[in-house]
Nucleic acid binder design. Structure first.
Length: 283
DNA sequence: CATACCCCCTGGGTGC
DNA sequence: TGCACCCAGGGGGTAT
């Protein structure tokens, strides 16, 4: 689930019950996720005021009054459930503890943020806020796709001479950070580029055309997530569950949505991951 | 350095 | 209802 738009949505969803508030207690129910938690994580979180939340790529960064920053990654199946808060007249009760509730933030106002992650590909770590750029998970990340550093000139330069499929290149977080399997498929469909095409053998003009398409796809997804978050009554407090209408992702065998195209969406496997595309519209 | 695989882990869906 | 198998939105590590 979580690519950049979902992480942005989750961040926005938990911000109202974290920012400016003290973590009365951090409940840590196991020693690790993908990697061991940092030393004394529960103690270093408990009693800390949350100064603010940020997002870098697919990471949520929680700045604490202790001058430390909590890094959270949702992996493939990570979820954030909010409970104990009130939206309008609706109060969200705390749920019964569920399987895979690995970390629970008990906030001073009674709200809880529960990190649930069945597959445990997620991660948490603590770092000095001042040295966040040096963190081993952060330091090699490419530019934010919605930021100014990601532009046509940059992408053309980065893909020049690359022998790797464009699909793999756009999934490479060192080139551009935040895209995942779904949105890369969607972007390549909009661009009319076959996912197996070698990145270095696409014309500069077509590479450049990817930049605004990437921004569009991500912005639209963030907007969709934001709209679903507005109505807490319909949700159970679980974030990142909005459904998008994908044009190619997970649509193998279904008709291409392009007007006048009578082909069906094809699935291939590239470096172990599914790619969906229209063999007629994408070359 | 660039590229290709393998792996971590649990659960849902499908076919028999 | 059981079971075997495939698949999953991520990404680090290692071999080539």
């Amino acid at each position: 689930m979580p690519e950049l738009p979902e992480v942005e949505t989750v961040k926005a969803g938990i911000a109202p019950v974290m920012e400016g508030l003290v973590i009365a207690r951090a409940e840590v129910n196991r020693p690790d996720l993908r990697w061991p938690f940092p030393e004394r994580m529960a103690e270093r979180l408990t009693g800390q005021r949350v100064l603010g939340l940020r997002r870098r790529s697919k990471y949520i960064l929680v700045d604490l009054a202790s001058a430390e920053t909590l890094l959270i990654h949702l992996g493939m199946s990570g979820r954030m459930l909010i409970s104990g808060h009130t939206v309008g007249e609706f109060h969200h009760p705390h749920p019964v503890p569920a399987k895979h509730d690995h970390v629970v933030f008990h906030m001073e106002n009674g709200a809880r943020i529960t990190f649930n992650d069945a597959r445990r590909f997620g991660a948490m770590d603590l770092m000095e806020t001042a040295r966040q750029e040096d963190h081993w998970l952060i330091r090699d990340l490419g530019p934010e796709p919605l930021g100014n550093a990601f532009n046509e000139t940059y992408l053309v330069e980065r893909l020049k001479g690359r022998n790797t499929p464009i699909k793999s290149a756009l999934l490479d977080q060192r080139i551009v950070s935040g895209l995942g399997n779904i949105y890369v498929c969607e972007v390549l469909f909009r661009a009319g580029i076959h996912p197996a095409r070698k990145a270095g053998r696409i014309s500069a003009a077509r590479v450049a055309s990817l930049v605004p398409l990437i921004r569009d796809v991500l912005s639209e997804a963030i907007a969709a997530g934001g709209s679903s978050l507005r109505d807490y009554r319909q949700s159970d407090g679980e974030l990142g569950y909005f459904q998008h209408v994908f044009q190619v992702y997970d649509r193998a065998g279904k008709p291409c949505v392009t007007h006048g195209c009578d082909k069906t969406i094809t699935r291939i496997v590239q470096s172990g991951r599914s790619s969906f595309f229209c063999p007629q519209c994408q070359r």
